[in-house]
Design a binder for these strands. Structure first.
Lengths: 213, 213
DNA sequence: TCCGAAACTGAAGAATCCTTCATATCCTTG
DNA sequence: CAAGGATATGAAGGATTCTTCAGTTTCGGA
C-alpha cells in the first residue's frame, strides 16, 4: 500500500517525572479501551484524552500526532511478543518436534492472551497505515526463529525447513488471530489451547515423514 | 464492540438502466482500489468518486452513506465465498477425510484468490464498525458446514466433530488471511496451496486416531 | 521557602470529510 | 419525437477532527 508518508513515528519526548509516566500509561490504556469500545473509526484524540482523564494537549506533548501514538502501542505489544518468543526459543533449542509443537504454541498463546485486550485492539489498527509493514517484519523474524529451532531438533529430517516454519507461523498467527478477533468464549480459548499443539505436531510429523529418506 | 447504530446498511435503490449498473461496478472497483492504495483511513467518498470517474452525488444515489457502500462490498465478497464453499461441500459430502482435507482447502483458497484484490481490501475494513459481526456469522456457518462433512465421512470417528471443525475453520481462515494480508509472493502462495491440505489432513488423522475406540 | 523546568490545559484555527439538493443530462417508451 | 422517469453533477452547508500554543499548575532541588 502506498500510504501517506512514513512520517515521524517516534515519541516526541520522554517522561522525566513520575506523574508523566502515569499520564502516558493512562493514555495508552485509554486508547486501547476506545479502540475496543468504538473501533478505529471513532478513535479520536479528544475521545482518548477524555477517557484518559487528561487534555488533548497533553497527548501532543508526547506524540507528534495520532499515528505516533498508535504506532507506539502496536510496537510495545509486538516487542513484548517477540521477547516472549525469543525466550521460549532459547529454552526449546535442541528439543524434539513434539516439544517444539507444544512449546511454541503455548508460548504464542501465552503471549497473545497475557494482554488479550491489547491484542484484540491491535488487530483493529493493523490494517491502518503501514502497520502491515511492521507486522510482516515481525512475522518474518518469528519464521526465522522457528526455522532455527526446527533445524536443531534431533528428530527432524525436514527437506524445506524454512517452508515448514512459514506454514507453522501462518497457522499459529492466523488461527489465534481469527479466534481472538471475534470476542471468543472461554470454550473457544480452551479448544484453541488444547488443539493447536496437536495441529502443529501432526503437521510437523507429517512433513517429517514425507521428507524421510 | 458497542458501535454507533446498526443504521440502514441496505442500498438505496436498485439500478434500472444498464448505465447505472456500469456506474455501480465502477464505484465498487474504485472503492477496492482506494482501499488497497490508501487504506481505510483515507477512503473518502470524494476519492472513491474521483477514481470511479463519477461525482459524489452519484454514489449517494445508490447508497445512503459510506458505510452502506463498504457493507455492500464486504457482503458481496462473503456471499461469493459462501456460495463457493457450499458448492464444494455438496460435492464432497460422503467423501473420506483425505478428500475433505484436499477439497476444503482447495475450495477455500480458490474462493479467496479468485478475487484476491477484493479479499485483501476487505481484510482492511473488517475491523471497522460492525463487520466483525457479519464475518463471525460467516465463520460460524462455515464451521457448521464443515462439521456436517466430517460427520458424513465414512472413515471418521471423531469424538468432538464441532470442535475439530472449529479448529479447521480457524486454521484455514487464519492462515490464508495472514498470508494474503501482507502482499504475498507467488512462492508464498504456492507454499500455502501445497502445504495447507497436508496440515488439514494431518490434523484430521491425528484427531481421528486420538478418538478411536 | 522559592524558582525554574516539567507537565498540563483547552479554546480556536485549519483542514477534512460526509451528505444534500437544485439543476442538468440521458434513456426509453408511447 | 416528446415527455417523464432515471441518472448524474458538484458546489456548499454542517459537522467532525487534528493540531497548536499561550498561559496555568505542579514538581523537585537548592
Amino acid at each position: 500500500m502506498t500510504r501517506p508518508a512514513p512520517a515521524l513515528l517516534k515519541p516526541r519526548k520522554a517522561p522525566q517525572q513520575s506523574r508523566s509516566a502515569v499520564t502516558i500509561a493512562a493514555i495508552h490504556e485509554a486508547t486501547i479501551q476506545v479502540l475496543l469500545a468504538d473501533g478505529v473509526g471513532r478513535l479520536t484524540t479528544t475521545r482518548v484524552a477524555e477517557r484518559a482523564g487528561v487534555s488533548v494537549g497533553t497527548m501532543y506533548q508526547y506524540y507528534p500526532h495520532k499515528q505516533a501514538l498508535l504506532y507506539a502501542i502496536v510496537d510495545r505489544q509486538l516487542q513484548s511478543i517477540i521477547e516472549a518468543m525469543l525466550t521460549a526459543a532459547d529454552r526449546l533449542k535442541g528439543h524434539d518436534l513434539a516439544s517444539l509443537a507444544r512449546g511454541l504454541t503455548t508460548a504464542w498463546l501465552d503471549a497473545k492472551t497475557a494482554d488479550m485486550v491489547a491484542s484484540r485492539a491491535i488487530y483493529g489498527i493493523a490494517a491502518e497505515f503501514d502497520l502491515t509493514e511492521v507486522m510482516k517484519r515481525t512475522m518474518d523474524l518469528m519464521t526465522q526463529v522457528i526455522a532455527e529451532l526446527l533445524a536443531a531438533a534431533p528428530d527432524a529430517r525436514l527437506a524445506d525447513v524454512h517452508g515448514v516454519a512459514f506454514m507453522l507461523m501462518a497457522m499459529l498467527g492466523g488461527a489465534v488471530r481469527v479466534v481472538l478477533e471475534v470476542q471468543p468464549s472461554d470454550e473457544d480459548l480452551d479448544r484453541l489451547r488444547r488443539e493447536l499443539p496437536r495441529v502443529c505436531l501432526a503437521y510437523l510429523l507429517s512433513a517429517n515423514e514425507g521428507a524421510a529418506g
